[in-house]
């Protein structure tokens, strides 16, 4: 069991007139190796939650355990925690600062106090893992395209060899192909490196195609926590939370309503295709 969130509450801007609860009684267990989608509309508390997981925000009450240790206990080494629970923020522009990509990726391992050789080896491996070509290594990160910047940002965190990788909206602002590439990359990383991945997104289609489990946040609470099929079966409730199921799920609902014998719990295009073909007796 790698992360346990136990009755966590967080009150935003405590002691001020603006105080309001951002997280309310959150309980989660995140075992090793899962691929999790965290969804919720803007302001649902999902960003606040992930920042709790690597100790950037301290809960107002409740505990967070990482490998059975309370991360907010005095004396707990948060720097080590942050290298193990890697967090990639939404905009790569917020973290890229070095003159070239390679140096930028070195930043994380360097902060861990590793010897220079190890730092460079890790940076090299990480850039390779995100599919970065050698010829771009010494380019300024600011000249890259949006998708490439994102890769460097992810490599910057991967170079710390985290056990858990959290990505906040990694596809925001990318074009369809760019989105697909990044999602495929993340899925590959999960499969090959066997790390836990938490993908924060507001795109249902993106999430449905890849993850094993979906956590839906709404108004600071966990609204659903289940495999995609079960979560999207609640599409009416999701709509009330200003979310929606993937378009294909709605298609299947429509078809079922029109008298077709199809499974309405379908969440991906592939499944939908199979279901419809089955209904037509084509396979």
């Amino acid at each position: 069991m790698s992360i346990i969130v136990n009755h966590v509450n967080y009150i935003y801007e405590e002691d001020t007139a603006m105080a309001h609860p951002a997280l309310i009684d959150i309980n989660l267990q995140i075992p090793e190796g899962q691929f999790i989608g965290l969804i919720g509309h803007t302001g649902s508390g999902k960003s606040t939650l992930i920042q709790h997981l690597n100790g950037l925000i301290k809960p107002t009450s409740g505990e967070i355990f990482y490998n059975n240790q309370d991360i907010n206990e005095p004396g707990y080494n948060k720097k080590v925690l942050r290298s193990q629970v890697g967090l990639v923020f939404q905009y790569p522009e917020h973290q890229l600062f070095e003159t070239d990509c390679f140096k930028d990726v070195c930043f994380g391992p360097k902060n861990m106090g590793l010897p220079k050789k190890e730092v460079e080896l890790r940076a090299y491996t990480a850039l390779k893992q995100v599919g970065f070509e050698d010829e771009y290594f010494y380019q300024s990160p600011f000249d890259l395209s949006g998708g490439q910047k994102r890769r460097v940002a992810i490599a910057g965190v991967l170079a710390m060899k985290p056990e858990v990788l959290i990505l906040d909206e990694p596809t925001a602002g990318l074009d369809p192909k760019g989105r697909e590439d990044i999602l495929r990359l993340i899925s590959d990383l999960h499969a090959k490196m066997r790390i836990t991945v938490i993908l924060v997104s507001h795109s249902m289609e993106d999430v449905a195609d890849y993850v094993d489990r979906i956590i839906v946040m709404n108004k600071g609470r966990v609204a659903f926590d289940a495999p995609p099929k079960e979560v999207f079966a609640h599409y009416r409730e999701l709509e009330e939370m200003e979310l929606a199921a993937p378009q294909v799920t709605y298609c299947m609902q429509d078809l079922a309503a029109a008298g077709f014998d199809v499974d309405t719990s379908v969440t991906t295009l592939e499944e939908a295709k199979k279901e419809i073909l089955k209904a037509f007796g084509k396979c």
Binding site: Q51, N54, L56, K79, R82, S83, G86, L87, V88, F89, Y91, H94, Q95, F97, F107, G108, N111, M112, G156, V157, M160
Partner: peptide, 13 residues
């Protein structure tokens, strides 16, 4: 604030 957090997540102090 966001940038600080992004760098702290990479071990910046």
């Amino acid at each position: 604030d966001k940038i600080m957090k992004a760098q702290m997540a990479r071990g910046a102090d």
